[in-house]
Every structure is written in C-alpha cells, then in structure tokens.
Design a protein around this nucleic acid. Structure first.
Lengths: 139, 139
DNA sequence: GCCTTATAGAAAAACATTTTCTATAAGCGT
DNA sequence: ACGCTTATAGAAAATGTTTTTCTATAAGGC
C-alpha cells in the first residue's frame, strides 16, 4: 500500500492529512521495520524534522483503529508494524526486529463456531532471520 | 498442569517456592482467566492475603521466562494467561477476556526455512465467546 | 539448627502513555 | 482566494504502570 492510499483512508474517516503525519507515515512505511513510539520519533527527527512524540502516539492510535498497524509486545515493549493489503501473518526477527509477511492462512478454512464468534485472528512467528543467524545481529 | 508441577519447575530453575508465590499461583491457575498484574494482585488479596504488587510482577516475569504464561496486549493493557501442557493456541473473548485453548496446529507442518529459523510461534483468535454474544457481556 | 542467598514488600525512581491547553493549519464552502 | 470551522500539533503536566532499591525475612541445602 502506498502513502496516497493511506491518505485517502485517513481522509475517509475524517482525519486530516497534516504535514507532520505525512513525515511520520513516510518514514514508517518506507522502512519495513517495527518501531516503538520513541524509536519512530527519533527516526523521523533524523530524516525530516522534529515532530512531537505525542503526534507519533496519536498516529499509531489512529492507524491501529484503521487496522493499518499491528502492535507487538516484545520483551515488555510495544512495537508497531505497518500492515496492509490482504490477510497475512508475520515473522518477527528477535534480533533485528524486522518483519516479514507470510501469506497463505490455513485458519480461514477451519470452523471455530463452537468456540465463539471470531472477529479476527493473528499469527506471529518469532525467530532469527537470515541476516541474524550468526552470533551477532547483522542488521 | 497442577501446582505441584509448576513448583517443581520453579525449583528446577533455582527459584524458591515461597508462601506468597503459592498464593498467587493458586489464584492464577485455578481461575482460567487472564489478568493484568493489578487485577491478579486484587484477586489474591480477596481470596488469600495481601501480597506485594511487586511480587506479582516478579512472578509473571519468572513464569514468562519458563514459558508458563503468555502475555497478551489488549487495548494497550498487558494481560497474562497461564499456559502449559502441549502446544496450543488461544481464543480470547474481547468482552470477558476469558481464554480457551485451541489444539491442533497446521503451522507445525509448514516449512519456513526460507524465512528464518523459527524459535516459536503464536496464534490468537479474538472474538466473542458463547456467553458474551448478547449485547451485554454476561460473564 | 545453621548458613547462604533468593525473595518479600514498602518506598522511591524510572518510564511510558495520556491528557490538557492554546495556537495553528487543514479542508470545506463560498 | 478568503474565511470559517474544527481537527491537530506540540509543550507541559498529569497519570498510570513497571522497575529498582533497600532491608528484613524465610527458603532450602548442608
């Protein structure tokens, strides 16, 4: 998904497309990484201008509502990753925290009606990516 | 899994089996619910004695390390659920936060060697349990 | 029983997140 | 292009959660 699509989704929900949100979105979407609020804040400051940390928190909140980001709890810290397009799952590298999407979901074909009414599900794999399989993370 | 088994697992890792841990463990394991640290703290206080909130936090930390609890991030809050026995996944009721285990995992048969070395995975379903499918949560 | 050392718990500190408040600017209608 | 309405930015304060610190206690080995 590109920036323009996200913009129009925000627009459709009556959210405004401020300059600051665009900066944060750019960095977030182009990186392919997951960030804590503080990490994204720092990265945006490096690449564009300083924005308020509050702005980053608020964007995460909005995007989570729109289901464009997925939060991950890793070692007690909340990381957010950009998520869009079709249904997919995640591989998260425990070393470098990069995320790869995994397509193909067997769960969709299973019947869970006895358990409850399913709203959504998630499936996350954790491990070490190709670049991080040496003793020291390399990415 | 019963309390004695958990005790021996703690023991095997050089953790001590204090009276306070036993109280907290009892409430936690017998409830079948997920708790935030504060919620479990309150519940233990009701059913047994007052224990330190710090003690609850420390027990969650230990049990997470031993993979006997799984943390869930729901609406920005961290809930812990007791988890043991064979490999399973979770259904979490978004209304009452009760957890049901789901056995049978297709992921085990898939090959993810191209993606990375998998350490573990988790799969969580979210929805509304049978008791909570009316307009108001009933449990 | 004695000794070593992990643990309990209160209090303080650290940290993350949310709220508040005012100035600003986005996006609409004209 | 202009003006109007209202969402938003960002600093600062408040809030709430989690961790750390410190000392007394008790668990478990000998």
């Amino acid at each position: 998904m590109d920036l323009e699509t996200v913009k129009s989704k925000l627009h459709a929900m009556n959210f405004r497309l401020t300059q600051e949100r665009e900066w944060v979105l750019r960095v977030f979407m182009e990186s392919g990484e997951m960030f804590t609020a503080m990490q994204l804040y720092d990265r945006v400051k490096e690449q564009y201008n300083k924005v308020g940390l509050t702005t980053v928190y608020r964007l995460f909140e909005v995007l989570t509502k729109l289901r464009l980001v997925t939060p991950f709890l890793i070692d007690g810290e909340i990381y957010y990753t950009f998520c869009s397009g079709g249904h997919h799952h995640h591989f998260v590298c425990l070393d470098c925290h990069r995320v790869k999407n995994i397509y193909g979901c067997e769960m969709d074909t299973r019947d869970f009606s006895e358990i409850g009414k399913i709203e959504y599900h998630r499936m996350d794999l954790f491990g070490h990516c190709e670049n991080c399989q040496g003793s020291v993370p390399s990415c």
